[in-house]
């Protein structure tokens, strides 16, 4: 009988220990979160995350580089030939299959984040085997739709969220 009480007492005690241990972990995590989260992008950095770009002076074949979120943004006014080149591709052959239509709002203007999807270098424009972009760091070739065609990069150049505010202004972010 007394054995029984003892073991019951023991299990109550260990429950108390485990419960307070669990509460301790919750408390430490809650206290620790601000110390970790402080390293995430701050409010002012987030606030600068939207920009407007004027494209009225961009003539056919010309491209423009602007800084958005600390990264280069490529805006390319494509020629008809470049648009055709981008469309005349069997997308099943691509490492990251995407149609050109999915990648543009207006096929004349291609808007890309100018950061190689391999390890973050800036590709050079109108270079490489596919007349699009070429990354000098580890040799990735992109086509006139910014799609990866050759080299170590796993994905196509990223398309930022953007809208045409009017005919000559793009709102990015």
């Amino acid at each position: 009988m007394s054995e029984n009480i003892k073991s019951k007492k023991k299990s109550r005690r260990s429950f108390i220990h485990q419960a307070s241990g669990a509460m301790g972990i919750v408390a430490v995590s809650a206290a620790g979160w601000p110390l970790i989260d402080q390293m995430n992008p701050s409010k002012d950095v987030e606030a600068l995350a939207t920009i407007e770009v004027d494209i009225s002076e961009l003539v056919e074949g010309q491209s423009k580089t602007v800084l958005w979120r600390g990264k280069p943004l490529f805006i390319k006014h494509r020629s008809q030939k470049e648009i055709n080149d981008a469309n005349n591709v069997d997308i099943n052959q691509l490492p990251h299959p995407e149609n050109d239509e999915e990648r543009v709002k207006n096929p004349k203007y291609l808007v890309l984040i100018g950061v190689c999807t391999h390890l973050g270098c800036v590709p050079a424009s109108d270079k490489g085997d596919f007349q699009g972009w070429f990354c000098p760091c580890h040799g990735s070739h992109y086509d006139t739709s910014g799609r990866i065609r050759k080299g170590p990069a796993p994905k196509n150049l990223e398309i930022p969220p953007y809208t045409f505010k009017d005919e000559n202004t793009i709102l990015v972010g």
């Binding site: 970790i36 390293m39 995430n40 992008p41 701050s42 950095v45 995350a49 979120r69 600390g70 990264k71 950061v115 973050g120």
Partner: peptide, 23 residues
Amino acid sequence: SAIPLIGDNITQWLWGGYSVDNP
């Protein structure tokens, strides 16, 4: 950023922004 799923969040956390910058 090669880490699946949370890779991009980790790099942004390391940077304190969207690229290597003042933070």
